[in-house]
Amino acid sequence: MSAASIALEPAAGRASSGLWSEIRRNPTIFLGCAILLVLAACAILAPWIAADPLKHAPVNRLKAPSAEFWFGTDQFGRDIYSRIVYGARVSLIVGLSVAAISSVLGLTIGLLCGFYRWFDGIVMRIMDGIMAIPSILLAIALITLVHPSLTVVIIAIIIPEVPRIVRLVRSVVLSIREQPYIDGAVAGGTKAPRLLVRHVLPNAVAPLIVQATYVCASAIITEAGLSFLGAGVPPEIPSWGNIIAQGRVFFQLTPWVILIPGVFLALTVLAVNMLGDGLRDRLDPRLARRM
């Protein structure tokens, strides 16, 4: 008994430090996390580290990057640095909320589809239908129907993302349910709902987390694309897509207005994808080999 409790402690110690050592050992996860943490810190601390992103200053129109305006100014004299810092909020909120909500929805629907054949037949046809429409077009159509706002943009991006997650989860469930340990659980008298939540669901979590990071990256790009097209968040909200859209006219004169938010957009998506790749290698080695 005492031997057992002694043996327990180092194991418990390892488990708690496991996540951190794992992150340090895996450079892709580390770099991805580091970039995202800096961006998130900027987004959260925006009011303290940036000026008013909406303040028009005609005197300072189209200024090149300088000590006063790190990333220059746009045609209304607004500080691009401040707009980018506030724009990070939009991108991160969209990325995270789309990833979280579509994962929950996709997981629920995917589990039911994989487990109940009749449900599968109906729902997968609907999912196929949604997937047949290009996601940007679907989002534009949804946004034109209602008054544009951040919430509407998020919902418009979630809808085309959900079927992809449903497919993934469903395929995992279909393979898991054939596993002998599921038969074993049934032979032990387990009810279907419990079987689903206790035995099937944990197996679907690893691939789902990986997929969620890709959804997050694609949501950030889609939001920027929608904003650029004028179908995204309202123009008064500084988002990276909006900054690029508004700087488009003066591209030859002041290319930094487009290039700098473009670099941030690329960097963010790269960081999310690196995190996703690192997690995939770590959580699901089989998936890594297949892709």
Partner: peptide, 12 residues
Amino acid sequence: FQEPMTSLNPVL
């Protein structure tokens, strides 16, 4: 069952 390797749920 026959297969002890796969008859236990790997994630629990």
